[in-house]
Amino acid sequence: MGEIRSTKTADLDRGVVEYRFDQRGGATVVIFHGGHMNAGLALGEDVFAEAGYSVLVLSRPGYGRTPLTTGTTASGFSEVTHSLCEYLGITRVAAVVGVSAGGPTAVATAARYPELVERVVLQSAVGPLPWPDARTRLAARLAFSPATERITWSAVRAIMRAAPNSGLRLLLGDLAVLPASRVLAALSADDRRTLIELFCRMRSGRGFRNDLTARRDSLGEVAQPTLVIASRNDGSVPFAHAEALATTIQHSTLLESKAESHFIWFGQDWAALSARIRDFLAN
């Protein structure tokens, strides 16, 4: 999970997009990552890989090597996704997976292209409610502006190398409603190492500020079966977003994770949730 994976770019009619296509011979799952991520970083993909699915991950607008001009909005990037699938010869997708700020793009892709997408999985996903709160928006705009983004992540890497536990407590404090010390104590040694590596490799580019824009285009209605997974302990995307998604999507199931933070993949019940995901995709 911590390593940087090889990516490619495609120059499509709708713009350049960075992607990683890990082919395994099975049906394809398309993943839209959350904030500060890109197609070269993997998080929570094991459940799909171990079930034999091919995984297609796109860097959303402003992240990695995808310019901000490619797509920009969730609906706009859903068109880019459709074009990339055509470019790669993918005619059917077992599921689109929306993680955190990637949730709206997964919803838009499913709504706009029901002939392409069979199912939807939303993990700690931003829903139809306002997000984030004003304080977080202001702080993020300051920390991740074009002038400060590189400095911010350089400081994060320095802290992680010099005092990793302190760095984890600092960053996890914004991702959980529980005390950061409690969140950290619940992590295994392997999970701590994975998170340290992940935080050291994250970048925001121009993508995260784009995620923070108040402008929300119409995402449309999702008719596909949808699995919504979230934790009440999430300090980044409140559980109310999951409840709103489950209410507004007709054929949806809401699973409550017991994870201590936004990172449901490190919760003690992730194995059980993974089994539910596999069953959901198989039926």
Rank of each mutant, 00 (worst) to 15 (best):
T248Q: 11
F239E: 08
H251K: 14
V55E: 03
S100R: 02
S100E: 05
L171H: 07
F263H: 02
I229V: 12
Q268S: 13
H36T: 07
L12D: 09
V29K: 07
W265E: 11
A108I: 00
Q250R: 14
E149W: 06
R276W: 09
G235H: 12
A27E: 15
T152S: 11
G35T: 10
L245N: 04
L84T: 07
V120H: 03
A140M: 13
V96R: 01
F208H: 14
L122W: 03
S124W: 00
P61H: 02
H251D: 15
S154G: 11
E256C: 08
T81W: 03
K258F: 02
A155L: 13
H262M: 05
L172G: 07
P67S: 05
V120P: 06
A246D: 13
S261H: 02
V222C: 06
E256Y: 09
S75Q: 04
T70Y: 00
I264M: 05
P132Y: 03
D190C: 03
F208S: 11
G40I: 02
L187Q: 05
T28A: 15
L58E: 02
A230Y: 01
G89W: 10
G167H: 08
F199S: 01
R206Y: 01
S252D: 09
L273V: 13
E221P: 01
D269C: 10
V96E: 05
T28G: 15
A51L: 06
M160L: 14
K8F: 06
V107H: 00
D174R: 14
R150W: 06
A186S: 14
A240D: 15
V126F: 01
S83T: 08
R192I: 02
R141W: 11
G127V: 02
T66M: 04
F266P: 00
A94N: 10
A147R: 15
L116R: 11
C85P: 11
F239N: 08
G35F: 00
M202V: 01
W153P: 08
